[in-house]
Design a protein around this nucleic acid. Structure first.
Lengths: 218, 218
DNA sequence: TGCGTTTTGTTCTCACGTTCACAAACTCCT
DNA sequence: AGGAGTTTGTGAACGTGAGAACAAAACGCA
């Protein structure tokens, strides 16, 4: 489930506050979900709570981390070291929780002289060589939209089966490869949509008041 | 609907290829959705297609853009000019489609001397003054997790009703304020989960084959 | 030990979103 | 002009996920 990471984060936060046991209500409140949904999600992993008491924070934390797979190390390769790629390579939250930037790749040869956060930028042409040196489980695409599909094809060809795509394109990949897309502009557009609807509603209210006033005066 | 931006992008791509008319099947194929779903989504906006022919690309593009609210200008303020904030400020895809970086804010005074992409970084303490100078419709939070809730509170207090949150925290905001969250680490964890399940399945297959072999030899 | 309280795990119901299937409508060709 | 072929728009079935409600179980206290 896509909610497990949220639960994990909330549990970590509780653990940092020194709380060792929590009820489903408390945890659900921290994640803003229904407590029944939370319990159902957790029961899918197994019976890790004790009735009448709640959940042991550390124990549940470990169980969720194990379920997600965070007990092992996940080497990540970032392709496209532009503004976003730089930011991702330097992102500290990356390192926490088992994820580790293992390689940086870029098509532009002039970028390959740099090194970001101690990791050298290699040419994307050397993909196979780089992957032979350091194993990579997850590929992150931070290239322009036009290059994304080609990069994805080569990553898949090199044996990568998990891709996080920041480029605004719908990647087509063979079955058995997971792709997750993060699209800044889509998020902004959704916000704009709601914002516009709010503005429109206000206008309507205003018009209704004006109409009521005219009716009054007529 | 959250799919409208995807449709819009696909339509723009078609328009760039010089295609002026397309059927729901073609468009649905480009977005990887069912054509019936696409038609129902579009019919929610109105009857913009012609039976037996399809949809006029430019006309539909305009209608969707109008529905989302992209026919107007959306000034955006970015709070937190660290690695990610820098990348966002320089992000070219930001400028396209009606979104415009109107202000950059940071709590650290030393950052306020810089200017990114021609826009000066102002102190977050001067939020109200900055918003008085330049109107802002959408606030983007690119701060560390600890500061995010405080920033959100101040943005809401200053009248902002749409927030895009990159910090790994669940913001609590009053009703009537839209929040969208982009969480890199959650996406990675979801990928790790699937990746681990694939690896586990392979192991199970291997174990099953081994067991079958043992059974054979036993 | 036995009862009341608390909280989990689970079942049932319901609503939503997705998909199928078909009628209405438009174009093209004869 | 009329029929064949396409494609939209929409009504009906289907499946999935969410919320409410309840039984089972653990703890505390008398």
């Amino acid at each position: 489930m896509a909610r497990l990471p949220e639960y994990l984060r909330a549990l970590t936060s509780l653990a940092e506050q020194g709380i060792s046991v929590c009820s489903s209500e408390e945890l659900a409140g921290a994640v803003n979900v229904n407590s029944a949904k939370l319990r159902k999600d957790l029961s899918y992993l197994g019976s890790y709570g004790t009735r009448g008491v709640g959940y042991d924070v550390d124990y549940l934390r470990y169980q969720i981390a194990r379920e997600i797979g965070l007990t092992q190390d996940w080497p990540v390769a970032i392709v496209g070291i532009g503004n976003l790629g730089h930011a991702l390579a330097n992102y500290s939250g990356f390192g926490t929780r088992g994820f580790r930037v293992a390689a940086l790749l870029d098509a532009a040869p002039e970028r390959c002289e740099e090194s970001v956060g101690g990791i050298p930028v290699r040419s994307f042409d050397d993909l196979d060589a780089v992957l032979a040196e350091t194993p990579v489980a997850i590929g992150v695409i931070a290239t322009p939209a036009g290059a994304a599909q080609g990069v994805a094809d080569r990553l898949v060809g090199a044996g990568i089966t998990s891709i996080l795509n920041f480029a605004p394109t719908n990647l087509v990949v063979p079955a058995g490869v997971s792709v997750r897309k993060v699209d800044l502009s889509v998020e902004l557009q959704i916000l704009a949509y709601h914002e516009q609807r709010r503005a429109g509603a206000e206008e309507l209210r205003g018009a209704a008041i004006a109409a009521a006033g005219e009716e009054q005066s007529a």
